[in-house]
Design a protein around this nucleic acid. Structure first.
Lengths: 198, 198
DNA sequence: CACTATTGGCTAATGGGGTTAGCCTTATAG
DNA sequence: CTATAAGGCTAACCCCATTAGCCAATAGTG
């Protein structure tokens, strides 16, 4: 019954581009409205709220992000694949800072965000799979995936915030991080108590 | 000449507490004013702007954070010290989410933020020092410090955002991350080309 | 102890951002 | 061709940051 729906996904995409340009915290309904050539209140015919917009950007971004990483892994295996994925991870985050920031979201109330959790899991599975090709001595792949994800996310975030003193050497540091982690995973942790940190 | 100065640092501290309670993004001048029992505009007699408040919280937080980590390291050395610091890092970040978030700041224009850079460097030096006691085969301590910092920050951030699916096992995953990284550092990366990632 | 400069609080006001309500036009389905 | 609903608009509200300008209390100073 309705008319041509050109807006819904287009608005999200425009929002994502804007977020990349001005930073997610500076993404504003007013700014987006101007960008798409509409008065601010009109946006609410397409998006429920600013928060919903951010969520939409996050979901869309996770999809694109996952695709980019998958693409980077094809035809590679082992440590080479891990490195390729790590590079793709960092490059994508740098090229899409607003989208990347939208990727991390507070836990949406009571599982309301079914879709979000799904795409998020998809991305984690990519890490999971690439680590599976590493013949890890330690069977706990969940821990390994979390470790890799933490390392990549942390590095990329600190870099984006300008947290590393000197701008030079950052590429090498990233390579070092990835290689060190892979080396650690392959040798296994020589700790044998399963005690949680106090 | 002025009168008793009870406000300046107290306001920052109150702001830090509030940030921990409601989250840094929800920290507002109005809220803080209410908290300290004053009308909103009065805050501007103590703080230049909301952004300055956040910066102040960040600097103060970095000091406290550094102290907590130093305290955790005394009497320990080697991998044990690294583990202790890692635990202290995570615990502090969990106990002070608002302060921790304030810790990461965009690069303040042109070196305007001398003080910030200093306390930030202090914290990095702690990591630096604890890694020095590890007898690393690879002399590049800067890379090692960045790696450790990235890993810890990434883990803590993802955890705070509720990014890990299941809440259980997180303690073990953290331990795994730290041990894996230490193992990797000790064995050295078996990569020998210094080429930056493409 | 009185005097005065200054601090630290207040009210009023401005501008911007999110959001809602209600109107009106226009394309589309029938 | 026409009824309908999507999609745009203006007006209005509330919350927040920030500035201007006023006033009381306080702390040095004589």
């Amino acid at each position: 019954m309705p008319r041509a729906g050109l807006a819904l996904p287009a608005v999200i995409t425009a929002g994502a581009e804007l977020a990349d340009e001005v930073g997610l915290p500076h993404l504003t309904m007013a700014l987006l409205a101007e960008r798409v050539g509409v008065r601010t209140p009109s946006l609410y015919k397409h998006v429920e709220s600013l928060d919903a917009l951010r969520r939409g950007i996050g979901v869309q971004a996770l999809r694109e992000f996952g695709e980019a990483m998958s693409r980077a892994a094809v035809g590679r295996s082992g440590p080479d694949a891990v490195r390729a994925i790590a590079d793709a991870y960092r490059r994508w985050a740098r090229d899409h800072p607003g989208r990347y920031a939208a990727t991390l979201r507070a836990p949406a109330a009571d599982g309301a965000d079914e879709e979000y959790r799904r795409v998020s899991d998809d991305v984690v599975h990519i890490l999971f799979d690439v680590l599976a090709g590493l013949d890890l001595p330690d069977p706990n792949a969940v821990d390994a995936a979390r470790a890799l994800r933490s390392a990549l996310h942390g590095f990329v975030t600190i870099e984006a915030a300008g947290g590393f003193g000197l701008p030079r050497d950052v590429d090498r540091s990233y390579r070092f991080l990835v290689d060190t982690l892979v080396a650690g995973l392959r040798h296994g942790t020589d700790t044998r108590d399963g005690t949680a940190p106090r």
